[in-house]
Amino acid sequence: MWIFNTKIYDFHLEKIYWALGNDAIVNILEAPDNASMAVFVTSISVIGNVRTIILRVFSEADMNGILAKPQDRQVTCLL
């Protein structure tokens, strides 16, 4: 099992899931900002046998705040 020094990388390990399929382990991490997470991911990726996928997720409260913002901006979709 991997042990990460959370004090060095400035994140909190919320959950670990062992999965079936393409992803063997799914970690739920909390970091104060994107830069802190990028430092951690970069440092483990240089090992060479670790593949990472980063997803920015939003809680229900976050989404309520996002959807409450004015929608008067024009959005262009390029396909």
Rank of each mutant, 00 (worst) to 15 (best):
M1W: 05
W2S: 11
W2R: 09
W2D: 12
W2Y: 10
I3F: 07
I3R: 14
F4P: 04
F4I: 11
F4R: 06
N5P: 00
N5K: 13
T6L: 06
I8W: 04
Y9C: 02
Y9N: 03
Y9A: 02
F11V: 00
F11A: 03
F11Y: 09
F11R: 04
K15L: 10
K15E: 14
K15F: 09
K15Q: 15
I16D: 09
I16N: 12
Y17R: 09
Y17G: 02
A19M: 06
A19P: 00
L20M: 11
L20E: 10
L20I: 08
G21A: 08
G21W: 02
N22E: 14
N22G: 15
N22A: 10
D23N: 13
D23T: 15
I25Y: 10
I25M: 10
I25W: 06
V26T: 10
V26S: 06
N27D: 08
N27V: 06
I28H: 08
L29A: 05
L29C: 01
L29K: 01
L29S: 02
E30H: 02
E30C: 00
A31P: 05
A31K: 00
P32L: 04
P32Y: 04
P32V: 04
D33L: 01
S36M: 00
S36E: 01
S36N: 01
M37I: 02
M37N: 02
M37A: 13
A38G: 07
A38Q: 14
A38Y: 07
A38W: 03
V39P: 00
F40Y: 04
V41Y: 01
V41I: 15
V41E: 02
V41T: 07
T42K: 14
T42Q: 15
S43I: 06
S43L: 09
I44E: 00
I44C: 00
I44K: 02
I44A: 01
S45F: 06
V46D: 08
V46W: 09
I47V: 12
N49C: 09
V50I: 15
I54S: 06
I54F: 07
L55T: 03
R56W: 01
V57M: 04
V57E: 03
V57G: 04
F58Q: 13
S59V: 07
A61H: 11
A61E: 15
A61I: 14
D62Y: 00
D62R: 02
D62K: 00
M63D: 00
N64C: 10
N64G: 10
N64A: 15
N64I: 13
G65Q: 14
G65V: 07
G65K: 09
I66Q: 11
I66P: 01
L67D: 11
L67S: 13
L67K: 14
L67C: 13
L67V: 14
A68Y: 05
A68R: 07
A68S: 15
P70G: 10
P70C: 04
Q71T: 11
Q71D: 05
D72E: 15
D72H: 11
D72P: 07
R73W: 06
Q74G: 09
Q74L: 15
T76D: 06
T76C: 05
T76E: 11
C77A: 09
C77H: 09
L78T: 12
L78S: 08
L78C: 07
L78K: 12
L79E: 10
L79C: 03
